[in-house]
Design a protein around this nucleic acid. Structure first.
Length: 291
DNA sequence: ATTCAGGTATGAA
DNA sequence: TTCATACCTGAA
């Protein structure tokens, strides 16, 4: 186990911030602190947080080479947030959102899984998205060696890896439909072909070409529009200026900014700010307020 | 039964 | 360019 002390890290907020769909909170035993199971980048990990101390149930080596980067723990969020608060101090809604959402970090999630997850996300609610992602994973991982991790309290926990692009590209559309994704199956299949047929490395190409060109490139994929492309840019490629506009952010624009585009939209950290705003609007505000 | 859920492709104005 | 509409599917 590795224990680190970090500020601006809240495992529960991260798990429910909607960046990825396979982080689950478990209660080991009533009265005991909750722990989180993270199924990501081909690994399974358990995490428990007590205040600003975070326990990662893995080796030192795995923490350093995998999870530190995944959770973006090398970035000083406290400093970034202070700068943002100074910059937009006259935006009271934003100040409230930041305080409410503090602790969320922008992950560096697996590229292909992020792409497929957000293709699935269109016209679906979050429990449905989670179900589809899990269904795809368990279906295509059948027969493979399951992921496992040394669980808290000596329990051994298992899970399945997200399918590879090659697996999905080689599968029949009907198999993909069978995972409950409906009309998105052909999008998934196309995206899988697009990814697996590229001779180079899409991640490094897209990371290197800059936000604008990455967006253009991603939106050429059948079934990928501006929202999905922005989510991939932000949650996987770590373009912190990428700012996905979904129904919740649209609500914010309509209701809090009266249809105008707020200043922070073009901030270099617009994506991080968007996460705070999204989280606040979705979880922190009573809808009865202005009903 | 009808509507809705973290959008996108398509075709018409 | 902008706008309306269909789209799988399950849950309220």
């Amino acid at each position: 186990m590795v224990t680190v002390q970090v500020s601006d890290f809240d495992m529960r907020k991260i798990a429910t911030s909607g960046q990825c769909f396979r982080m689950t909170e478990w209660i080991a035993r009533p009265g005991h602190p909750a722990y989180f199971e993270v199924n990501a980048i081909g690994k399974l990990l358990q995490v428990r947080q007590e205040g600003d101390r975070v326990h990662f149930f893995c080796s030192d080596d795995e923490y350093e080479t995998v999870w530190r980067n995944y959770f973006d723990l090398g970035t000083n969020y406290t400093q970034i947030i202070q700068a943002i608060k100074r910059k937009y101090s006259d935006d009271q809604f934003l100040m409230n959102a930041i305080e409410y959402g503090r602790g969320i970090r922008i992950l560096r999630h697996d590229f292909f899984e992020t792409l497929i997850s957000f293709i699935i996300s269109q016209r679906k609610n979050i429990p449905e998205i989670r179900k589809c992602v899990n269904f795809l994973s368990s279906k295509f991982a059948a027969g493979e060696h399951p992921l496992s991790t040394q669980g808290i309290g000596n329990g051994l926990s298992t899970g399945s890896k997200f399918p590879s692009a090659k697996q999905l590209a080689a599968s029949e559309i009907s198999e993909i439909i069978g995972c409950g994704v409906g009309y998105r199956a052909k999008y998934i299949h196309e995206a899988a072909k697009w990814y697996s047929e590229f001779p180079g490395n899409w991640e490094s190409e897209l990371s290197g070409m800059g936000y604008e060109r990455a967006m253009e490139t991603l939106m050429k994929i059948y079934g990928v529009g501006p929202k999905v492309a922005n989510c991939v840019c932000l949650f996987s490629l770590h373009y912190m200026n990428a700012c996905p506009v979904d129904v919740w952010i649209q609500k914010v624009l309509d209701q809090e900014y009266f249809g105008n585009i707020p200043q922070w939209f073009s901030d270099p950290y617009a994506g991080l700010i968007q996460q705070f705003v999204f989280f606040y609007k979705r979880n922190g505000m009573s809808t009865l307020f202005w009903a």
